[in-house]
Design a binder for these strands. Structure first.
Length: 272
RNA sequence: CACUGACCAUGUAUG
């Protein structure tokens, strides 16, 4: 059963809920892990209705499956359902609280988020990050900063969130000072500072950061691309675009917007 | 063996 469970998990993560379902369906002696894995396979792959069916059919429920269903509701913006589930479950961990909080903040229920945050039995870095991004989404940089300064310490994720918040609010220098005071960096935080410079039109610095990065992903490339495309350097942007190894919807939209902003309507049409 | 937070374009509700 362990091994079959691993396979269900793999298919679920790969996005193939149908194959996961086949294995699950034929599996004799399903345990609570099998059920939870099937539940998250559906939850991850945009099948909320099927996830609910699996949940309803489960022989028993535990914390993990409640949390998984909360995650699914949150991702599908079913905030009311998340709240109902949260109120009805037998036990809650900090993660369950964080999930409801994130359901609120990601869907801009800021008042509810604030009330819940103040009612929580404890907070961890996730709780703070979630509340912080709630403020950011509602453009309240002041509250975001106040919350950040209340924290006992800062991990990589919450620092990156605050860095991006400053950048979004137009405070490049505050973003920089967070970055340089951090104890550790990863690809995401490098991308965040790169995009901060890019957003503020500091093309030279953005380029240097990009060139100096040890690893890059498509987000890094798109950030550099937008530095050029949206600040009037269409030719440079085109060069970057052509050296990219892969493109996604964001790359194309960036390039298209760049052409439009610079009056290159023919090129824009071609891209489109 | 299962569950939560941060990074990229455009748009995102007094139009």
């Amino acid at each position: 059963v362990f091994l079959w469970n691993l396979l269900i998990d793999a298919y679920g993560r790969f996005g193939d809920a149908v194959s996961a379902r086949k294995i699950f369906g034929n599996l004799a002696g399903k345990n609570i892990y099998s059920w939870s894995l099937m539940l998250s396979a559906y939850a991850r792959n945009e099948h909320l209705d099927l996830a609910e069916e699996v949940y309803a059919a489960m022989p028993e429920w535990n914390l993990v499956c409640w949390n998984t269903l909360l995650t699914a509701y949150k991702q599908h913006s079913r905030v009311e359902s998340a709240k109902l589930l949260f109120d009805s479950i037998q036990e809650r961990t900090l993660m369950s609280w964080n999930l409801l909080l994130t359901a609120y903040t990601q869907n801009r229920y800021l008042k509810e988020a604030k009330l819940l945050f103040d009612k929580m039995p404890e907070w961890d870095q996730v709780s703070f990050t979630s509340m912080l991004t709630g403020y950011v989404r509602t453009s309240d940089i002041g509250q975001a900063k106040a919350l950040y300064e209340r924290m006992p310490y800062w991990d990589l994720v919450v620092s990156t969130a605050m860095l991006s918040a400053y950048s979004l609010a137009g405070h490049l220098e505050d973003a920089e000072s967070i970055f340089y005071r951090m104890q550790e960096w990863n690809l995401v935080s490098w991308n965040a500072i790169l995009s901060a410079y890019s957003r503020h039109g500091r093309l030279d610095v953005a380029r240097k950061i990009f060139d100096g990065m040890r690893e890059r992903n498509i987000i890094s490339w798109n950030a550099l691309l937008s530095a050029y495309a949206l600040k009037g350097h269409v030719k440079q942007a085109k060069l970057v675009f052509e050296s990219m190894l892969e493109w996604n919807l964001i790359s194309w939209t960036t390039m298209l917007t760049g052409y439009c902003l610079n009056g290159c309507l023919e090129e824009a049409k071609l891209v489109f």
